[in-house]
Design a protein around this nucleic acid. Sequence first.
DNA 1: CGGATCGAC
DNA 2: CTATGTCGATCCG
Length: 860
Amino acid sequence: MDDVKKVCNSSCNDGVLLRMGLNDNKAGMEGLDKEKINKIIMEATKGSRFYENELKKDQQVNQRIEKMMQLKEKITTQQLLKAQLQVDKLVVELEQSRNLSSTIVHIDMDAFYAAVEMRDNPELKGKPIAVGSMSMLSTSNYHARRYGVRAAMPGFIAKKLCPHLTIVPLNFEKYGKVSKEVREILAEYDHNFMPMGLDEAYLNITEHLEERLNWPEEKRRFFFYTESTTEKDKYYKNISAKFNESGYSSSPVLFEDNTPLMGDHAKQRDPSAENSVVFGTSAEEVVKEIRFRIEQKTQLTASAGIAPNTMLAKMCSDRNKPNGQCRISPERQAVLDFLQDLPIRKVPGIGKVTEKMLKALGIVTCSQLYQQRALLSLLFSEASWRNFLAISLGLGSTHLEKDGERKSMSTERTFNEINTAEDQYSLCRELCRDLAQELQKHGLKGKTVTLKLKNVNFEVKTRASTVLSSVSTEEEIFTVAKDLLGTEIDSLAPYPLRIRLMGVRVSGFLSEEEKKYQQKSITSFLKSGKEISFLRLQTGKPNQEYFTKNSDGSPRGSFFDKKRAARQLNIENLPTNETVSKQLSYDDKSSANFVEETKKATDFQNSGVCKIFTCPVCFEEQSSNNLEELNRHIDDCLSGTVVKDTVEILKSDNSRENTLNFLSEFKNENADQCQKNKTDQSDQSASTSDNSTCNSTEKFTRIILDKPHRERQPSNLCDIARNVCMKQCLLPRTFPQDHEHHFEKTERTEETSSSCFFEAKKDGILVCPVCNSEQKTTSLMLFNRHVDVCLNKGLIQELTEKKDFPTNTENSNRVGGLSRGQQCTKPSQGTKRSGLTTSQSVSKKAKSSNSKHTIEMFFK
DNA sequence: CGGATCGAC
DNA sequence: CTATGTCGATCCG
């Protein structure tokens, strides 16, 4: 979309109006001047809930600015000088890395949707039109823009600005088709061109330019598409006029020919024909050719920018729109000249908030951005000021990297106020259904579900929950989403939740790598057939009181508390085959009673009173008054006695899930082996333990370990875990003063990493499985602590609070002080995060108590 | 991680 | 009456 939203003049100080779209209308022309436009918008706006919210947001930005200014006051000359030196060192580096050798083109269709609609409906020509609805416009044509009608403006306001405005509804299908036609052309110049939405694209024509040098003229000749109808005739005469104006050396254009001609067709024609045009070999000529071809093919015009990198190309394409192009020649000085007086708002990535903040510092143009680089490095985050610096130097990506895998998928809807829980739940389900459909279409499953709500005052809230295994079906997503919704409804009771928008998002997809691995695992898991009987899944109706994480106020337990509670529940609900269904139906109730249970469990743990505990591995009751003994017992179970013939595990509740997952994986390994030994094992997967097929049906897992383990190097957690069980682990896993801690670790076995399972390197040097750094330590506990620091800052804090963990102060200070990203990043990796971030490793566990599910795989 | 915010189309 | 929908990135707690 062209830059309708960026027209805001930086001279405009009025916070709210800043967003409303002013126009740079020239006096005397048809349309309205800025003042009138603002007045009309204001009248239509003031007093509305929307406006109130805009004011609120504006104040928040002002507060940010205030904070920044306070920070600025405290900066000393000394600090500034020091910063200047450091930044300038970076400037030298960046300058050295400047690469002017690429030719990047940014193509931007002019008022795309509006142009398409006008093309297809001649009645609209010459009229001000906008595409969208009374609620929201996507774009407007240039005629309408003179009245201040812009993209992102509600139609009813646009109507007030321009009463004779025609609003055309969106027709994405059509735009998609046109877009495809354009892309076909673009692909000829760069196979890897990068589309940005339907109407924009970046091309790297560096290679094309080289090849083109050797092209014969005939290969660069294009013919005008002509038709005998008067209407079209006129149309193309206009085009040819434009092209001649802009400096084409082409001969006068005639329109006697009826045949659309491009590329190879051209060769067959008489080269001297006057209805053709030959384009040169320069970058400008190439882009003119592209634009020409686009126009011939679609009757739509495009603007373009040519520059040594994407950022510059994008800004360039803005320069001469509509229907124009601009080039920054690949010289440093040309780049700097271009930037000199360019308002920072024109820079992609700098929006209205950043603009306002920088303006508070007196920065409006890119050259000012450069001049203030030292100050900016002290006031903004590393990422931000480095970005600012790159901008002010005119640096950007010189190649087009294909966008990586999708990270999230979502759907949201705006509607008239909905305030009854019933309607909200059913809407939520509907959204989940739509989303599930899309997810499955793309074969995606994610671990995090986010619910988005916008109340009638336009305040937006998001609530997220991450579960252990990926979700993709309506039921799975809804199970999570309805809980999130439930807590929100509850948190407002007795007042109703009054919303105008709801959205559901799923993120945390498995990477391609992980997918393959899981696929394999599941397959082998299923193929082992008879060994698997059931998988249990959460069941029953949505329970509004079901506990979830809740940010503000409402009762919630910490992760550990939940774990303890869950453990405690085990004690009361011994899983036996007879009580299975009872147990399950209790599950939901037990969740509802979560708070109470949490308390009980915590009390138990603190009191040290002797209690009965059911070992999650062997399921024998253990009576113990301290966790140490329990841990020892579990250690014994894990390290040998259990891993032998035919162990049956009944999966009955969440608390045991981790251990079960751990063992499931075990089983997978064995199943894998089985596959190789037994030639044809008939597939008895009637038990359908695939994640995706698990619905609310009650199922149980029965896991049998009956095969010897393969011998090979540990390559993933599962392997490591196996080694532990085979007593191959090189390190003792019980730490005298650290039993509770250890217990938690046991539960974390499904984590991508765990301080419990690692390999020892030589004397006193251990390799942290999280950050991979070598840790010199004489104390396992200290090492363990390091790993945990890597795993989760919050975790450590919790532990230290509760247990007064012995530790060296320097270390604990550092933990609190550093940001997580830094903690676990190897120095050599610079600013990039290590493959395994803290967040990732902590993620799965965090919501474990909230999850239902089946097989959990482990990856390294 | 979870939540808010920014920015782009 | 009537102020979008989707996505990625980043920052902070």
